[in-house]
Design a protein around this nucleic acid. Structure first.
Lengths: 189, 189
DNA sequence: CAGCTTCTTGACAGTCACTGCCGTTTGACA
DNA sequence: TGTCAAACGGCAGTGACTGTCAAGAAGCTG
C-alpha cells in the first residue's frame, strides 16, 4: 500500500505542475513552486521526476503501440498495420483523457525545450518502427528500404502532430491516419 | 574591421569548445573551461553564443538549401527538385569541411540535449519545406497533401541522418538521396 | 592630436535546475 | 513491539544563464 501513496504523490505533482504551467507559463514556474503546491520538498520532486521537463513528457503518450502493431495480421502492409494499430488503440481512449492529451500537446509544442525532447522521442520511434517492420518483412532493420519507410511514416506523424491545432478537426489521430493513407497510395504532387 | 575580430573570436570559441568536447566529453566540459581556452571571460562567451548548445549547433548546417530548391525548374517534382538542390549544394563542399561536419554530427547524435535540438530544427524544416512546396504547386502550405509530403521527405532525412555512421558509405547526402528516390518511386514493403 | 561617442569586455551578484549526502521519519513486517 | 528498509526534508554545492555596471578600446569629429 506504499505503492498507492507513491502513485498519488506522483499524480499530485503532475497535476499541480500542469496547473501552474497553464496559469503562469512553463518558464515562469519553478520546481520550488510545484513542490510547494504538491506539498512536498524540492528534493522529493526530483525523486519522482528526473527533470522538470519529465513532468510534462512522461506518460505523454507512447511513441506508438508496439503490441497492437505486432498483433496485426501478417498479410497487412506495414502502413496498413500501423493505421489499424493506431485506430484500435486510440478509439478506446476516454474523451476526458484525450482532451488532457491535447492540452499537454499544445504546451509541448509551444515550449522549445519540450518540443525538442518530444521530437527526440519521435526520432527514437523511427528506430523502433524500423525494427518492427524488419520483424514483419524478414528484412534487416538497417536495410535502407526499411529505414526509409520508417522515416517517412514517422515524418508524416510529426507533420500531423505539428499541424494538429491548426486544422479542423484538430485531431492528431485523424490527421495521422489521413497522412498515412496518402503516403500509402503514393505522393502525387 | 571590428567585424574581423569578432569573427575570429567566434571561430576561436567554437574551435576550442569542439576540441574540449572531443577530448573530455560535452557534459564534462564547462563554459568556464571553454572561455579560458579561448582567452575570454565567461560573460563574453554568452555574448557570442546564447547557450552552450549553440556552440555546436549554430552553422551546423542549414536545414536545407532554400535558394537552390527555388532555382529548380518548375517541371521537376518537389522530390526531384529537392534531390537536385541537395546534390548541387553539397557537391561543392570541401572535403575538409565535410569531415568536420561528420564529426560534429556524431557529437550531436551522441548527446541527448543536442540531438533533441537538432531534431527540432528538422521539425521546423517541415514547415519550411511545406511552404516551398506550396509555392511550387500553387497549393496552400496547410494543405494536407503538402504537409504529408513535407513530413515524409524530412522524415526520410531524419532516418538518413540517424543511420549515417552505421552504413557504408557513411554519407548522409548519399543516404538521403537514396531514401528520397525510394520515396519517390513508392514504398513497396 | 584631443575629445567625444559607441562598442566591447570583464567583474559581480543573483536565479534556478539539478546532484549528493546525511539524519530523521514512516510504514511494513516479523 | 522492535527492527529494518524505504521515503523524506534539509543543506551545501555545481553549473548554465541573466542583468547590471564600470572600465577600456576603437572609431569618428573637430
Amino acid at each position: 500500500m506504499r505503492e498507492r501513496k507513491k502513485a498519488r504523490t506522483r499524480a499530485a505533482i503532475q497535476e499541480q505542475a500542469l496547473r501552474l504551467f497553464r496559469e503562469q507559463g512553463y518558464g515562469n514556474t519553478t520546481v520550488e513552486q510545484i513542490a510547494a503546491a504538491a506539498e512536498i520538498s524540492p528534493s522529493t520532486f526530483f525523486r519522482y521526476f528526473p527533470t522538470k521537463e519529465a513532468v510534462v513528457l512522461d506518460d505523454a503518450f507512447d511513441p506508438f503501440p508496439v503490441e497492437a502493431f505486432r498483433a496485426q495480421p501478417a498479410s497487412a502492409s506495414p502502413i496498413q498495420a500501423l493505421r489499424h494499430a493506431m485506430r484500435s488503440t486510440f478509439a478506446q481512449l476516454p474523451a476526458e483523457e484525450a482532451a488532457a492529451q491535447r492540452e499537454r500537446d499544445a504546451l509541448i509544442r509551444s515550449v522549445p525545450e519540450l518540443r525538442a525532447r518530444m521530437l527526440d522521442r519521435f526520432g527514437r520511434s523511427i528506430q523502433l518502427l524500423a525494427e518492427l517492420v524488419a520483424e514483419r518483412t524478414g528484412r534487416r532493420a538497417d536495410d535502407s528500404a526499411v529505414r526509409t519507410l520508417a522515416g517517412a511514416v514517422i515524418g508524416v506523424g510529426i507533420a500531423a502532430w505539428f499541424s494538429a491545432p491548426d486544422q479542423s478537426p484538430p485531431d492528431f489521430v485523424a490527421a495521422l491516419d489521413e497522412g498515412l493513407a496518402q503516403l500509402e497510395s503514393g505522393l502525387r504532387l
